[in-house]
Simulated assay, not measured.
Amino acid sequence: MHPAVTKVKVIEDHKLRVSFENGEQGELDMTPYLDFGVFSRLKNPQIFNQVTISFKTIEWPCGVDLDPEFVYEKTVKR
């Protein structure tokens, strides 16, 4: 089980600053995923900037959400 997301902030085009309940934090670059399926909805900056936390992970009002394990693994570099 991965730690829950506690804070998310857009820091530049399609990049997020994500904080977790265990105190770790890092950047998540969504650019590589924007040409795949539902993620293409996030190309629009107005939509991307509406990111929120829901159920311990990240989601957007347009119906796109991310697996908590993906968020943690792609954000916290070990």
Rank of each mutant, 00 (worst) to 15 (best):
L16T: 00
R17H: 15
R17V: 12
V18L: 05
V18I: 10
S19D: 13
S19M: 11
F20H: 00
F20Q: 01
E21M: 08
E21Q: 12
E21P: 03
N22S: 10
G23M: 10
G23E: 06
G23D: 07
L28M: 05
L28V: 02
L28I: 05
D29W: 02
D29N: 09
D29Y: 02
D29G: 04
T31G: 09
T31Q: 14
T31V: 14
P32Q: 10
P32S: 09
P32N: 09
P32M: 09
Y33N: 05
Y33M: 11
Y33T: 03
Y33Q: 07
D35I: 07
F36P: 08
F36E: 14
F36H: 14
F36C: 12
V38I: 14
V38N: 08
V38P: 06
V38S: 10
F39G: 04
F39L: 07
S40C: 08
S40K: 13
R41A: 12
R41Q: 13
K43V: 02
K43M: 06
N44R: 09
N44K: 11
N44C: 03
P45Q: 11
P45F: 07
P45T: 05
P45C: 10
Q46D: 15
Q46C: 12
Q46E: 13
I47Q: 07
I47T: 10
F48Q: 00
F48H: 01
N49D: 13
N49P: 07
Q50H: 08
V51P: 00
T52D: 14
T52L: 15
I53Q: 03
S54E: 12
F55P: 08
F55Y: 14
K56I: 07
T57C: 06
T57G: 04
I58L: 11
I58P: 01
I58C: 02
I58R: 04
W60C: 04
C62L: 05
G63N: 05
G63L: 02
G63H: 00
G63R: 05
G63D: 05
V64I: 06
D65I: 06
D65F: 06
D65G: 08
D65Q: 08
L66V: 05
L66T: 03
D67Q: 11
D67A: 14
P68W: 02
P68Q: 08
